[in-house]
Design a protein around this nucleic acid. Structure first.
Lengths: 129, 129
DNA sequence: ATAAACCTTACTTTAAGGGGAAGGTAAAAT
DNA sequence: ATTTTACCTTCCCCTTAAAGTAAGGTTTAT
């Protein structure tokens, strides 16, 4: 099938699918006389796989790694679990940062009158030496 | 003072300070015969202000807005509070996304044996149709 | 025959700088 | 006085993961 259909079936944009071909993440065989990319059913499965993993916040390079495990019959689930646990750690770190940030901002907002006067504890906090 | 000192005092890299000058966020007067940027004490205060706001996750454009409020004697704290509350909403949204993601990943990891066998519920989940 | 729908490569843009080259300047050490 | 070292400048490329657009080739439908 052509890229348009592969795009629809995998729920990715044509641009994205073409990008994945360029970076050799999911590379279809090139049909030689039209120059059109020719996608197989299996390619579509791989595209879907990557789409899911991307939604789970895995980077392209991590997707490449997962995909090679996915394709490898001799893989061990240990490796996949390890990558996933690392990703969870990353997310926890980010969550903590965001929570702290939210606390500080909400503290500032609560102490700001929000009226027409220029006094503003938010700006004061930003301009503290 | 030169950019190096302004950089140290504001706790930003020279690259960053130069970048802020280029995008006219914090623009010092250019000393004309050496071509060196000439920073005032007030410029340093602005750089620090931006540094703080950036740490609070405000984008450059939001910093520009906050900075103009900071410089404006006729500002109303209402405006600043509004921008801050919007930022808190954004953070809440991001927090929810990350929490959901974490739940799904941790569910998958918990169900993965993590041994040397190829069966892996994580990969299975990624390849579901 | 022509228009539409689809495909191609290639270039530019995004956010917020980081890295490094090539070269000018200033201050300190010899 | 000269050289070394420490700063400073502009300029260009790199990062993520595509999206936008241009210019042009192909295929299908009317």
């Amino acid at each position: 099938m052509n890229i348009g259909k592969a795009s629809k079936l995998s729920d990715l944009t044509v641009k994205t699918v073409r990008y994945y071909a360029n970076i050799e993440l999911v590379k279809p065989k090139q049909s030689n006389f039209t120059g059109y990319r020719e996608y197989s059913e299996e390619d579509v499965l791989k595209l879907k796989f990557v789409g899911k993993a991307r939604k789970f916040n895995f980077s392209i390079e991590e997707c490449r790694e997962l995909l090679s495990l996915y394709e490898n019959e001799n893989r061990s689930s240990k490796e996949v679990k390890k990558i996933t646990l690392e990703k969870i750690c990353e997310i926890d770190k980010k969550l903590k940062e965001l929570k702290d940030l939210r606390n500080e901002l909400s503290y500032l907002a609560n102490n700001c009158h929000g009226d027409d006067k220029p006094n503003c504890p938010i700006l004061d906090a930003f301009s503290q030496k």
